[in-house]
């Protein structure tokens, strides 16, 4: 059987799972990386955001086939010492916390592409990551902090 190979959080993964397996379920149920959340399965909420070759992507819209040979990073692959996670802690961002792994991964994706985003650019990049508890202002402050646009 053909195996799909990719890199996950720095380690190589090889799986015989069906190529059409949804990445979010593979991560969560087969590998136990439940930090990546399943929120809508429609690519509309951003809770399942992971990095694929450095880009923020919705893992519910990707299959194993899509990430063949790619470098995938999930929330578990980001150390707590990472500036984005530190800013999240400092701003005390989470409430229910369900959307936060996706928010963090999306923010990291943004900052990789654009290390010093303006507020407008942050709004644009983060608009697809929904939060029902209303933590948006703290998320924005955390990102501005990492971007060096707010005093730490």
């Amino acid at each position: 059987m053909a195996m799909i190979k990719f890199t996950l959080n720095g380690k190589s993964v090889e799986t015989a799972s069906e190529p059409s397996t949804s990445l979010v379920w593979f991560l969560r149920e087969e590998l136990g990386l439940t930090g990546t959340k399943w929120g809508c399965g429609q690519g509309l909420c951003g809770s399942c955001t992971v990095l694929v070759d450095g880009r923020a992507e919705r893992s519910c819209q990707l299959t194993l086939e899509d990430v063949e040979s790619a470098k995938v990073v999930t929330i578990e692959g980001i150390p707590v010492s990472h500036p984005v996670k530190q800013a999240w802690l400092k701003e005390s961002v989470p409430e229910c916390g369900y959307c936060q792994p996706g928010q963090i991964m999306n923010a990291i994706g943004l900052l990789l592409k654009n290390p010093r985003p303006t507020e407008k650019e942050i709004n644009q990049a983060m608009d697809g990551n929904l939060c029902r508890c209303g933590t948006y202002n703290r998320i924005k402050r955390a990102i501005l902090q990492v971007a060096g646009k707010l005093p730490v």
Partner: peptide, 27 residues
């Protein structure tokens, strides 16, 4: 006081209902 559950919700380790994992689990 800062929230005691913040870190677990930032590092992905907080267990929500949907995250419960058991051997032989059906869906």
């Amino acid at each position: 006081l800062h929230r005691v559950d913040a870190l677990s919700k930032i590092n992905g380790s907080a267990t929500f209902g949907l995250d419960v994992r058991l051997r032989g689990l059906s869906y």
